[in-house]
Simulated assay, not measured.
Amino acid sequence: MNDRTPAAGAHRPPVSSAPPAVPVAGARTLRRSALWAGLLFLPATASVWIAAVATERGGRCLTYGACGDVPGPLFQATLVVAGAAWLAALTTPGGAPPSRARWAALWTLFAAELSFLSLVLGHYTG
Rank of each mutant, 00 (worst) to 15 (best):
C61T: 03
P93S: 07
P97C: 08
P20G: 00
C67I: 13
L121G: 11
A8S: 14
G122Q: 08
A85W: 01
G26M: 08
E113Q: 08
F116C: 11
T108D: 02
D3P: 14
W49Y: 12
T63R: 08
P13D: 04
V48L: 04
G38T: 05
L39Y: 08
S16N: 05
N2R: 12
L42N: 13
V24T: 00
A89W: 01
G38C: 05
L90C: 06
V70T: 10
S47C: 09
S115Q: 04
C67F: 11
L40R: 04
G26N: 12
A8T: 07
L62E: 06
L35Q: 07
R32L: 09
W36F: 10
S17V: 12
L30T: 01
P73N: 00
F116E: 13
V53F: 09
C61M: 03
G83C: 03
R60K: 15
A21H: 13
V70C: 04
G65K: 02
A25M: 11
P98R: 00
T55V: 05
T45C: 06
G72Q: 14
L79W: 07
A112L: 00
T5M: 11
A52Y: 00
L79K: 09
D3A: 11
L121Y: 11
F75L: 05
A77H: 12
L40Q: 07
L109W: 01
W36Y: 14
A111H: 02
G94N: 10
W86Y: 13
D69R: 12
Y64P: 13
A112D: 02
A85C: 04
Q76F: 14
P93E: 04
P93K: 07
A37H: 03
A112N: 01
R57F: 08
P93M: 09
G59I: 04
V48H: 02
A111L: 01
F41W: 03
S115F: 01
R31G: 04
A112G: 01
P93F: 08
T125R: 15
S99R: 06
P20I: 04
A44E: 08
G59Y: 09
G95D: 13
T55A: 05
A104K: 10
S33D: 14
V48N: 02
G65W: 01
T91S: 14
L87S: 14
A88V: 05
A25D: 11
R60N: 15
L117S: 04
R100Q: 11
V120Q: 07
A52L: 00
A77P: 13
C67W: 12
P13E: 03
A7V: 02
A111C: 03
A89E: 05
W49P: 04
T55D: 02
L40P: 02
C67G: 07
R57S: 08
D69M: 13
L40C: 04
G94L: 12
P71M: 10
G95V: 14
V22D: 03
G58T: 02
T91P: 11
W103V: 05
R100P: 10
G122D: 08
L62G: 09
G59F: 06
G72E: 15
T63F: 07
C67R: 02
A18M: 15
A7L: 05
G83N: 03
N2W: 12
A52Q: 01
S16A: 05
F116W: 15
A82Y: 00
A88P: 00
S115D: 00
A104G: 15
T5C: 10
R102Q: 15
T29I: 09
L35N: 15
L114F: 12
G65E: 01
L90E: 06
W86T: 10
